[in-house]
């Protein structure tokens, strides 16, 4: 009985110490996450240009979204970027991880080379690819001409401009590839031996051993990549950036991503309320897609420990 009070006291002290250590994050969360989240819901129901006081307009921003042609273009583009980009990234990362796992001299060097583009600042990457894709002096069209393939005016033609956005994103696939490589090395070797004894071929081993072992990584990477593609901003913005007009987005708005349009709505057109509504729609859609991917996991993801 006598020891009860000191225990309670110790618990209280622990709580205070815990709070104290966590204080920076608690303050940061309150100021930079919780308050803005609430405020952003509020702004989404207003007409607000940053300088005047916000006026309440109810659901008008959300209704306006249904009739905004540029918004619809941006949604189409973003879905295209994600729809092509995510599977392409996963596929290349998977194949690339196998290539990096080849028993050849210089493996660590090759790994670093694959990771290199992810270290290059996105601004540098984008400007560099603008140079590489230059129809006259760039190397990409030069190589295509040498191979007798079509040599497009990349950033001047809508379809090719979208392709350029995806190429730039795929250039930084190294991070995903390294994760797959690590996963590949965790696959128990005796599984392959057992499969060999059973007479399994290369394809059989991939289908029945490698792929199932990698499905948890694939799930995680699909979610991360999907979120990243839905938020794609810097790559299309920098590829389309032109001094003439701050709100350009490539020929026929071909590179206008959802986040780019959100940025333009807020900071070029100063429609803070409308942009806040856009942000919430993006957030809800991202959550929906994430839960859908997580929900699909039962059907195709194999966990070793049940």
């Amino acid at each position: 009985m006598a020891s009860k009070r000191p225990v309670a006291k110790a618990r209280l002290r622990n709580s205070l110490v815990g709070l104290g250590f966590a204080a920076p994050f608690i303050v940061g969360f309150a100021v930079f996450i919780a308050y803005p989240l609430v405020a952003s819901v509020g702004y989404s129901f207003t007409d607000f240009n940053l300088f005047q006081t916000p006026t309440n307009i109810g659901l008008a921003n959300y209704q306006a979204m249904l009739h905004d042609d540029r918004l619809i273009t941006s949604i189409k583009n973003t879905l295209l970027f994600a729809g092509v980009g995510v599977p392409l990234n996963i596929g290349i990362a998977l194949v690339g991880a196998h290539l990096l796992n080849l028993p050849v001299r210089g493996q660590p060097l090759y790994r670093a080379m694959a990771y290199l583009p992810t270290i290059v600042p996105v601004v540098v990457g984008a400007y560099l690819w603008r140079w590489l894709l230059n129809p006259q002096y760039g190397f990409v069209d030069h190589l295509l001409r040498m191979a007798h393939l079509p040599d497009p005016n990349w950033l001047l033609e809508p379809g090719w401009a979208r392709a350029a956005v995806i190429i730039l994103s795929v250039w930084t696939v190294g991070g995903t590839m390294i994760v797959y490589l690590a996963g590949l090395r965790e696959v128990p070797k005796d599984l392959y031996e057992a499969a060999s004894l059973d007479g399994a071929g290369i394809i059989g081993k991939f289908r029945h051993i490698t792929w199932p072992s990698l499905t948890p990584i694939t799930l995680f990477q699909s979610i991360v990549l999907t979120i990243a593609y839905l938020q794609l901003f810097a790559q299309p913005y920098l590829l389309a950036q032109s001094r003439l007009n701050e709100s350009t987005a490539g020929p026929g708005d071909s590179m206008l991503s959802y986040s780019m349009y959100l940025f333009q709505s807020a900071f070029v057109n100063l429609k803070m309320g409308y942009a806040s509504a856009m942000a919430w729609v993006l957030f809800l859609f991202t959550m929906l897609l994430t839960f859908a991917l997580l929900g699909s996991a039962r059907k195709w993801v194999h966990y070793v420990n049940g």
Binding site: Y35, P36, A39, I227, T290
Partner: peptide
Amino acid sequence: TMMLPPQVTMIPVYIMWS
């Protein structure tokens, strides 16, 4: 917080700083 898209907080945070 890691999952939250920065777009959602970006505008109110900007308004706050401004």
